[in-house]
């Protein structure tokens, strides 16, 4: 018998991933490219896919409007959708791995609420603040939330169950402050904040792309290189410790990465719920539980899901545009139901 895996070895380097990973990643990449092109083509001013590709490659399509519509209006929002999805997908994969809980998601354990509160506070209290401050403030909010959750639920390595319950409680506190702000803010600011809270990439520009990009550049590679340690943590504290993992330190690092990605994503596009829940799950179906393959797969799945959600939100009830957060929630809840039912069948074996 041979262990079924793709092995790369040279003198001092060796590496193994599941055989399913490369084709899955390639396939996902292709689907996402198509989705991006479709998304860019849709709208009040439809553009043919061929012209889109030409414009993206900087070739002349014979229509000067194309460059403006694509490059200035539609491409940045689509790219934001893609990037945000990557961040949520990875973050969800990390939190599910850490808590060994298939229902964990940065939204459910309260990270997103903390980020939202910080960002709403900035929008409502300081409406004139430049846009790149938002990811930073949301990260601070998410991070404080994570520190609170960690200190309340993780001291002396307590259980994942507690983690979720504490997250629910802290979300409620953050939510109370958020609705306090929404009640007293100027109605225009509140309206702005609401669009943003529902999770939307409406009106996002290159400015958002570039204020978000550094977060991805720093934290995605960190997530990928540390996924090996996530495998160990996934087996529970005692086993991980027995295997020689520096559990507290590793977990701290994983949490930092998960929080940073979720926080920055929330700041850029609001709380697009359930992506962090769905993407890692679908990923496990496709490539198994090994996080070295799972994290990149969840990232691409997350990106694809948000781009598709945005496409759906724009086309379903055109000209009214649904925020993609509403679309992901509408898809996410039934998926959640499916997970619960499947869990029950598993446990009855």
């Amino acid at each position: 018998m041979k262990l079924d895996g793709l092995v790369v070895r040279s003198q001092s380097i060796s590496f193994q991933i599941d055989r399913r990973v490369p084709p899955v990643l390639l396939g996902l990449g292709a689907v996402i490219l198509v989705a991006i092109v479709l998304n860019v083509g849709r709208g009040e001013y439809p553009i043919a896919p061929f012209d889109i590709v030409k414009t993206l490659l900087n070739l002349d399509t014979g229509n000067p409007d194309h460059a403006f519509v694509i490059n200035t209006l539609r491409l940045p929002r689509t790219i934001v959708a893609f990037m945000v999805g990557i961040a949520f997908g990875i973050s969800g994969g990390i939190f599910q791995g850490l808590t060994s809980n298939p229902l964990a998601d940065p939204g459910i354990i309260g990270i997103n609420e903390g980020a939202s509160l910080a960002a709403v506070a900035v929008i409502v209290l300081f409406p004139s603040v430049p846009i790149y401050i938002l990811p930073l403030s949301a990260f601070v909010g998410a991070f404080l939330m994570a520190v609170l959750i960690y200190s309340l639920a993780w001291n002396k390595g307590s259980s994942p169950i507690l983690l979720i319950l504490i997250g629910v409680g802290l979300s409620a506190i953050a939510g109370a402050f958020t609705s306090f702000l929404l009640t007293f803010g100027q109605i225009e600011d509140v309206s702005n904040a609401l669009v943003w809270l529902a999770g939307s990439v409406y009106g996002r520009t290159w400015e958002q792309v570039f204020s978000f990009l550094p977060w991805l550049i720093i934290f995605v590679p960190l997530a990928l290189t540390n996924s090996r340690h996530l495998n160990a943590l996934n087996l529970g504290d005692d086993i991980a410790r027995g295997l020689g993992s520096r559990v507290e330190w590793q977990r701290g690092l994983q949490v930092l990465v998960g929080v940073a990605l979720a926080g920055a994503a929330v700041a850029t596009a609001g709380t697009i719920g359930f992506v962090g829940l769905i993407a890692p799950h679908l990923g496990r179906q496709l490539v198994g539980t090994n996080h070295q393959g799972l994290i990149p797969t969840a990232a691409l799945l997350g990106g694809g899901i948000v781009v598709l959600a945005d496409l759906l939100g724009r086309t379903l009830f055109a000209p009214i545009e649904l925020p993609c957060g509403v679309v992901t929630a509408a898809v996410g809840a039934p998926y959640f139901l499916y997970l619960l039912i499947r869990n029950r069948q598993k446990s009855s074996l």
Binding site: L103, I108, I164, G273, P323, V326, A329, A330, A333
Partner: peptide, 16 residues
Amino acid sequence: VAGAALTALISSFTTA
């Protein structure tokens, strides 16, 4: 957890 998830879903509809 079911309550929290459903709340997330429901409030997203409310927001919409």
